[in-house]
Amino acid sequence: MFSGRAKSPESSGVVPLGSAARGFSGVVVGVGVASNDGGLQAGELERRLLEIGFVEGARVEILHEGAIGRDPIAVRLDDMRVALRRREANAVMVQADAGEAAYLTAAE
């Protein structure tokens, strides 16, 4: 379904949040763009994500992953913590922080 590690950073370094691994940290650059195989219309999922704070410019960091299939994930989203499934997280595009340092910023 998703690759365990963050996709090898493309030149832009923008990946869907759902494909990033634990320890990833970065900034939201787009919401509601990824294909969505879920039961919701893409527009509805987008608004839900926006309402819970996944909005362009927000800082995200993946803190934890579930035991089975590394799903769901728990992320720090600015000052709050949010749990969501990778399928929904795929609709959030994130830009990794510069350099490998991103991988080292694990949960305090």
Partner: peptide, 9 residues
């Protein structure tokens, strides 16, 4: 398909 699961901790 099941519904999305998004929840504040």
């Amino acid at each position: 398909a099941s519904e999305p699961f998004i929840m504040e901790l």
